[in-house]
Amino acid sequence: MAREHRETERKYEGFALPAGLGELPGVTATREAEPQDLAALYYDTSDLRLLRRGIAVRRRTGGGDAGWHVKLPLGADARHEVHLPLGTGGPREVPAEFSGRLAAFTRGAALLPVAHLRTHRVRTQLLDRRSQILAEVSEDRVASRTFDLTAAGATPARAGPTQGGEVHRVG
C-alpha cells in the first residue's frame, strides 16, 4: 500500500551548515540526529522525459524512508511524494503501481536506471520550546554516477562527488 504526503524542501549546493541554527526565530534548541548512509538508484526514460517535467523515481536503501519513491512537482519547493516499501517490485524493476501512475508522462517508454547516488547525510533537528521538531537541516556528501543511456543495458558513464544540504519543513 502506497503512502503519500506533501514535501517542502529546499536544496543548496556547495556550502557547509552555518553556525547559530539554534538562534533562529522560534528555535529554542538543536539536536544532532544519527547520520545516515543512503544509496539511491534513479529511473527515467532513455530521453529523460520525467526529469524534464520535474518528476523523480528512485529506489533508496538506508535511512528512515527506504523504499521506492515518486516525487511529483506541486510548485517551487513542494512535491507530492508517493512511497512504496522496498519489497515492492524487484530491485531493478519499477513497481507496476508507479509505472501506471507515470504512464501519461512516459508514453509507453521503458523506465531504466539513469543515475546512482551514494549519500552520507549529517542531520540537525531544529526544536521548539516543547522539543518538537520544526525542521531538519541536512548536510549531504554525495557521490554520483550517471548511466550512458545510448548503450544497451544503461552502462555507467560518469561519476563525481558533490556537497550540499537540504532543509525539510515538518508538518
Score class of each variant (00 low, 15 high):
9 E>N: 04
55 I>A: 02
53 R>W: 00
126 L>A: 09
17 L>T: 13
119 T>L: 02
157 A>D: 09
5 H>Y: 11
108 G>V: 12
82 V>M: 06
22 G>Y: 11
67 G>T: 11
18 P>F: 06
145 R>G: 03
20 G>D: 05
119 T>W: 03
30 T>I: 15
33 A>L: 15
124 T>F: 08
34 E>S: 12
14 G>D: 06
171 G>I: 09
95 P>I: 09
100 G>S: 10
121 R>V: 09
86 L>R: 08
164 G>V: 07
79 R>C: 07
93 E>D: 12
59 R>K: 12
97 E>I: 02
119 T>S: 11
5 H>Q: 10
109 A>I: 06
162 T>W: 03
40 A>Y: 01
103 A>Y: 07
76 A>Y: 12
163 Q>F: 07
129 R>I: 09
52 R>Y: 04
32 E>C: 02
140 D>Q: 02
18 P>G: 09
139 E>F: 12
61 T>P: 04
161 P>S: 04
82 V>D: 00
168 H>R: 08
1 M>N: 01
151 A>Y: 01
125 Q>C: 02
90 G>L: 08
130 R>A: 14
49 R>D: 14
36 Q>C: 12
137 V>R: 03
113 P>F: 04
133 I>N: 00
83 H>L: 13
33 A>N: 04
153 G>M: 05
29 A>K: 13
25 P>T: 03
151 A>C: 14
42 Y>H: 11
19 A>K: 05
37 D>Y: 11
59 R>F: 08
98 F>I: 06
161 P>I: 06
36 Q>V: 13
38 L>R: 05
26 G>V: 03
167 V>K: 02
136 E>Q: 12
112 L>T: 06
14 G>Y: 06
9 E>C: 09
41 L>D: 04
29 A>E: 15
14 G>M: 02
36 Q>D: 07
69 H>T: 09
133 I>G: 01
71 K>A: 02
106 T>Q: 08
71 K>N: 03
117 L>M: 14
11 K>C: 13
6 R>G: 00
139 E>A: 12
97 E>D: 13
79 R>S: 13
160 G>N: 01
72 L>I: 05
26 G>D: 10
112 L>A: 01
54 G>D: 01
127 L>N: 07
141 R>A: 13
112 L>V: 15
23 E>V: 00
120 H>S: 07
111 L>N: 02
148 D>H: 09
138 S>E: 10
39 A>R: 13
40 A>G: 09
106 T>M: 10
78 A>P: 04
116 H>W: 11
87 G>C: 12
27 V>P: 05
112 L>E: 12
16 A>R: 13
140 D>L: 01
74 L>H: 06
1 M>T: 11
40 A>I: 06
155 T>R: 15
60 R>S: 07
159 A>I: 00
98 F>G: 01
152 A>R: 08
130 R>E: 14
161 P>A: 10
2 A>S: 07
83 H>I: 12
101 R>H: 11
73 P>W: 05
18 P>Q: 10
140 D>H: 04
34 E>T: 13
22 G>N: 12
51 L>Y: 13
84 L>N: 00
105 F>H: 12
160 G>P: 03
46 S>D: 15
148 D>A: 14
116 H>Y: 14
128 D>E: 06
153 G>H: 07
40 A>E: 07
147 F>L: 13
165 G>L: 04
155 T>N: 01
58 R>V: 08
84 L>T: 04
37 D>L: 14
33 A>S: 00
